[in-house]
Structure formats: C-alpha cells, structure tokens
Design a protein around this nucleic acid. Structure first.
Lengths: 171, 171
DNA sequence: TATTATTTATTGATTGATAAATAAATAAAC
DNA sequence: GTTTATTTATTTATCAATCAATAAATAATA
C-alpha cells in the first residue's frame, strides 16, 4: 500500500519535468514512465488516462502557488512587493511547475481547460481578498495586474527573453 | 498563378480559426484543409510541412498586432490608453489571431518557439521605442507591463474568465 | 498537347491504452 | 518454519487509432 503510493508519487514528481519541457501533447506517457523508472503501461494503473495524470500533476503546481501566496504576511505597503518576491522564489525552486501552469491554458482538452480555469479563478479571488483585507485600494485591479505580471515573467522564462522583464522592479 | 496564390491565401485565412480553437497539436492538417475547402494533401503543395503552415499563419497574426501598435498616434499622456484600445479592437476584429499568439509559446517545436520568441521581442522593442519617443519615463517597464496586460486579457478570453479583467481600466 | 491544379489512395510512424503473463510479497495452512 | 495459496506489483506484447506526408492518378485550363 505504502509502496503503491510511493510509486504514484514518484510518477507525479517526474512527470512535472516532462510536461513542463515538452508540453502536454509532446510529452508521451512513455517519457513520463521512463523518467519515473517504470514501464509505460504501468502509469495507467495509477491514472485512468493521460488527462488524469496531467490533472494530478498540475493540481500540485497550482496548490503550491496558491499556498505560497496565502502564507505571505507583510504590512500593506510592502505586501505586493513581498508577494512578488514569493513568486520569484517559486520560479527558482519549482521552475517546472510554474512553466506547466503557464502552458496549461493552451491545452484544448475541455476537461483540462475547465480545471485550469477554475484554478486561475481561485488564485485570483484569493489574491483579491488578500489585497482587500490589507486595505489596498482597487484590490481587484491590483490582483489582475499581479497575475499579468506573473504571466509576463513566466513568458520571459519560456521564450528565454530576459529582456522582457529587465525593467520590472522585483528582478 | 493567381489562383494558386488565392488558394494559399484561403488556406492561411481558414487555418487561423482551427489553430486558435484547437491549438497547434490538436489542429490537424485535415481540419485546416476542410475549413479551406481543399483536400488534406493539397495543403502540402503550398507548405512544406505543418510547421511551415503554422509559421505562415502566425506571421500574419503577429504582423497585424505589430502594425497596429506602430500606427497608433496619440499625445504622450494618452498614448498607453490609446494603445490599449487598439489592442482591444484587434481582439474583437481578429480574435483568433490573438488567441493563436497567446498559445504559441506553448508549442515545443524548437523552430516555432524560436520564431515566436523573436516576434515577441520585436513587439517589445517596438513598444519600448514608441514609449521612449513619447517621452514616457521607464519606457521599458511600461512596455513590459503593457505586454503583461495583453497576456492577462487574452488569458481571460481563453479561459472564459472575464472576472480576471473586470477591474482593468480599458474594458 | 502541355502545363497547372487538385484529388484519390496509401503509408509509416507515433502513441495512448488494453490484455495477458510473470514476479514479488504477504498470508494461511500444515 | 517451511510450503502453499492469494493478493499485489509490474512487465511484455500488442492493438487500434490518428495523422503528417508521399506518390500516383486525374481533371481543368491555356
């Protein structure tokens, strides 16, 4: 039982890198299996299909980002800056997860898209609430801009264009 | 000769919608052909392969965005706002093209990624120069934020989450 | 007739997924 | 405590579908 959970865990952990590097469609279940050190069909003992595997992987990525933001605690006048730093840190420590999240919207599988959509909304609402509670004016707009900034940073990472964010403050 | 060019044109025009809706990998050459009213193998008489077809299509999308920004002319204190409106208008008139551009970074084909990367850089540099010429301080940062905002708007479109941009000014 | 435009037929490779077989571990029985 | 039975873990073999791409054939046009 513990072993079985371990293997599932190992598959998820190794799938992140494959999905991040190759994208959902170019990432094959064989590659994920190889990265995890198991055979390709064995992946389907833990996940009903490729889509479910992906969902499991991206759930983790979203949760990490969500939780990180939730845990940030700073005075109102430093909140946004601190949140920015927190995001920068996730990019460094869990680069693949962030890249996955960024690419996820381009997956046309309707099941995945709905999943991704609801997760982005969750993060947005969580950010808005946090900014509101801190007494920041235009909390919604601030949350929007914060996400837009995150998208830009990640795009710069994916396209290897550091110029795109050279002028941004928290770099 | 003219006919041949016409058909190529027709294929490009119809491919936009297919690529935008399904994404590069889920869009098949058969679908593109059907949308254009030709047979699937005939597409390869105009484009060496699927990748070249995609490049031709996205070149047009990028060019339209690039040209639109280049043509904007407004006093410095209204420049950004006017540019924002211009972008909003492209989304309405050429929604598929914008969606394509947004999704393009998630294509792991190295040829396409390099292509997309250079196009984003071009737009960024063009924006920066425009802001500089208008005497806007922190032109680079402003250009970055402008692109980040565009990414956010497009993401909201793709994920059908208008909430994400409800608080943004130019909506 | 010659050239251009376009289609039909076909293939070779990829890949998600299934099924059957085997190995390993655990428990039960003697 | 060793053998047997049973479940759990994992692999090998294979399939069926999808799709980009090629080649050969045909139709249209000049």
């Amino acid at each position: 039982m513990a072993v079985r959970e371990d293997k599932k865990e190992i598959i998820i952990e190794n799938a992140v890198g494959v999905f991040a590097e190759r994208g959902y469609y170019k990432a094959t279940t064989a590659m994920v299996a190889k990265a995890a050190g198991v055979t390709q069909p064995y992946v389907f003992h833990f996940f009903e299909n490729k889509e479910e595997l992906f969902k499991a992987v991206i759930d983790r990525a979203f949760s990490r980002i969500y939780d990180t933001f939730a845990q940030v605690n700073a005075p109102a006048d430093q909140l946004i800056e601190t949140m920015g730093h927190a995001f920068e840190q996730i990019i460094q420590t869990h680069r693949d997860e962030v890249l996955m999240v960024m690419q996820a919207h381009a997956i046309s599988e309707s099941g995945i898209r709905e999943h991704v959509s609801s997760m982005f909304l969750k993060i947005f609402e969580s950010l808005t609430l946090k900014f509101e509670n801190a007494g920041i004016p235009n909390a919604r707009e601030t949350a929007s801009q914060f996400i837009g900034n995150g998208l830009l940073i990640t795009l710069a990472e994916v396209l290897k264009l550091p110029q795109l964010i050279a002028g941004i403050d928290n770099c």
